[in-house]
Design a binder for these strands. Structure first.
Lengths: 344, 344
DNA sequence: TGCCCGGTAGTAAACCTTTTCTGCGCCTAC
DNA sequence: GTAGGCGCAGAAAAGGTTTACTACCGGGCA
């Protein structure tokens, strides 16, 4: 059904080699012949079969990004960065979604390997699960053997052999420490820490950063609760903590530090549902600085992670080579309106 | 470098045909041989080259989605639907981003054609630009000739031959009319319409719906301004209208109907910057019901478009066949807090 | 006049699979 | 004892491209 190079060759009354050469433009072809071939291509709407082309080893494989979820705003930003950088280089970008499932992630890496991707980019922290980690490390090795760069964005790289993968990180713990520092400086002592899912390194490090900032402060009382990274679980957890620990109707904390902007929006929602004002009654912070953070009520104080830059950098390093020391991107707290002074 | 089926065959001391058959499992192979082959595959980490496989016509091409922008929350939801449905069917899903550029969109459809995608899904309205439309129609025909289903989500299908593409729509105009109707019912007469970019059918239809709802109401004064679909342009436009048309410091409208939730958040921001309260001073509506709409300040009254369902449906119809009449999905207004009664 | 060379075009191999067809050995049934 | 059948494995073709090699043609030069 599909027209092949043979059809074009017949139409133009030349050999298939000539057609290929006209299209590639890397070999002298007489002007008259070239014109004839081009006309035939046009007439037949010929498009070269990329499978055959790649089989022959001619052109480059796609750049793959593996996302937990397409709708997750932070990783979407990263994918955006990958996409635009890939496009700038004339490469195709393949996006796959794992649905947050570790096994599915492995499966997709396998798939990309089979697709002969010219780079595989996977964002996110690593999971504490050893079995999972071993498989990732093994896949990293396989990819390395195929000569396919694997770039790990986030902080999972810590446990993969440096020769097998390119690491790009951001100052995850430091960002957490910085924003927690602001909250401490605002006078807050009783604070609820909602780092997210600490089975993963992302939340674990953020928690560490939070705790670290409060380590030196007198009278700090930290409550730590674990949830997933999503809005609803955070909202539910806030209600639960309020139910459980409130004394005389007063919340047991004056600030809540969330591991994610989405969690923060859940926290804000719960606060509203309880009639608690932010930041007057309780201050709230997020992490990531997704676009929606700015429009929250009140506008969210959070830490900006340069996801899009990270994505672009990932493809640059994958294609052009990476420095021997892992790159670590700076992080920045953006102050908006959700943090106020602790009431006495 | 990469291991081929020949390597496995050698390792297992069988022919390549046998290896292929063991892997495919569609032909009797002696248990002993099978075990030997499997061991060899394991030992060599063999993964079949998908190009060679597809060249032979063996397995199915990816399902492609073309997005304006990965970070656009509504289309991301659609992509999510496509992805999960594709996954449920064991298919790979390819996501490409056009960056909103019409030419780039054409280019990507071409690319997908070359990739022998087993379906191409493109969301969004059509553009008034005839040249662009002609090319889309032509590509639809090409894809149809290749036997690749093209599914158009949104309302662009209106101008493409029904045999060449599958159309999935939603009640775009009706949703706009419904939400505008609520605003009218709340007593608003002087309203600002910000439909988005009306060079495209999406905004055009929404505008029509808005206008229609006010067609019968006495004393309606509609101001229509055109912007892109993004937050900032909407915010800027609101400031501009306020600057231009305010009388005695009072805004020239008591409600603004936006073509998009993102635009609505820009509107809300501008209102805040002007010290105007929503909904007390001016009511605001959005369109799409993206996840962030709920967390806006105030929570946004908007119309829910079933994007995710639409994505899933798109792959179902592409793969299983579509009904002769285009499917049109229902739309629903979700009332939250951004619409109040008009002040007298 | 004969040779060589530059400019083009064609031939065929190679890329890696899947699958059809062929073939081999052995068992069964007559 | 032999023919036919069955269970399994191998040989080879096909699929569409790119490219190294070969070949042809005409002109310039010896």
């Amino acid at each position: 059904m599909a027209t092949t190079i043979h059809d074009v060759a017949r139409e133009a009354a030349v050999s298939i080699a000539t057609v290929s050469r006209v299209l590639a433009g890397n070999y002298p072809v007489a002007e008259k012949t070239r014109a004839r071939v081009l006309a035939a291509v046009e007439a037949l709407d010929y498009a070269a079969n990329p499978n055959a082309r790649r089989l022959r080893g001619a052109d480059a494989g796609p750049i793959a990004v593996l996302l937990g979820s397409i709708t997750g705003p932070s990783f979407a930003a990263l994918a955006q960065g990958v996409e635009s950088e890939a496009r700038a280089r004339g490469r195709v970008c393949l996006i796959g979604a794992t649905g947050g499932d570790a096994d599915r992630e492995i499966e997709l890496v396998e798939l990309m390997r089979r697709q002969h991707a010219s780079a595989v980019i996977v964002p996110g922290g690593f999971w504490r699960d050893d079995a999972h980690h071993d498989r990732i490390a093994r896949l990293a090795k396989l990819l390395a053997e195929d000569g396919t760069p694997l770039v790990l964005c986030g902080n999972r790289s810590l446990r993969v052999n440096a020769d097998d993968a390119i690491a790009i990180r951001y100052e995850n713990e430091r960002g957490a420490a910085r924003i927690a520092g602001r909250v401490a400086a605002a006078g807050h002592r009783r604070v609820l820490l909602l780092p997210g899912d600490t089975r993963g390194s992302t939340a674990e490090e953020r928690l560490r950063g939070f705790a670290e900032a409060f380590a030196g402060v007198d009278g700090a009382e930290l409550i730590v609760r674990e949830t997933s990274f999503d809005r609803e679980p955070a909202r539910d957890m806030l209600h639960a903590v309020l139910d459980e620990l409130s004394q005389g109707g007063r919340p047991p904390f004056s600030a809540v530090l969330s591991g994610t902007d989405q969690m923060a929006s859940g926290v804000l929602a719960a606060l509203r549902e309880r009639g608690l004002a932010c930041p007057a009654d309780v201050s709230v912070t997020g992490y990531d600085d997704v676009p929606a953070a700015r429009d929250l009520n009140p506008a969210l104080t959070t830490v900006r992670v340069p996801y899009e830059e990270m994505g672009a950098l990932a493809v640059q390093q994958a294609l052009d080579g990476a420095p021997s020391a892992p790159t670590v991107l700076p992080v920045e707290v953006v102050e908006r309106e959700s943090v106020g002074a602790a009431s006495r």
